[in-house]
């Protein structure tokens, strides 16, 4: 089973990189762009066939390593 984990900054946590990207996009003429938030995508391949079990294991991975839950949140997307 494959999984994609999205790690992004929690709402309210300042994202200087996102802000810089937003400014750059505005500068390129994309004036419609408001706030930009940057995050990470982590792709995992798992030797696991049960979606439920995979989700619970990935949650544990996120809590222990993949995200710093002081400042980041995560979403898990399971793929076959």
């Amino acid at each position: 089973m494959k999984a994609r984990v999205f790690v992004t900054l929690k709402n309210g946590v300042l994202d200087p990189q996102g802000k810089a990207i937003g400014h750059a996009l505005n500068g390129l003429g994309f004036g419609e762009v408001g706030e930009v938030r940057q995050g990470k995508v982590i792709d995992l391949e798992l030797a696991e066939t049960s979606a439920e079990a995979a989700r619970s294991r990935i949650k544990e991975m996120c809590e222990k390593l993949l995200a710093n839950t002081v400042i980041e949140k995560y979403e898990i997307d399971l793929r076959n």
Binding site: V13, L14, P16, N68, V70
Partner: peptide, 17 residues
């Protein structure tokens, strides 16, 4: 120390990048 939770909070990218 913050990553290991011995100290609270986190250190992020400098505001000026």
């Amino acid at each position: 120390l913050t990553e290991s939770r011995l100290l609270p909070g986190a250190l992020m990218r400098n505001a000026g990048l």
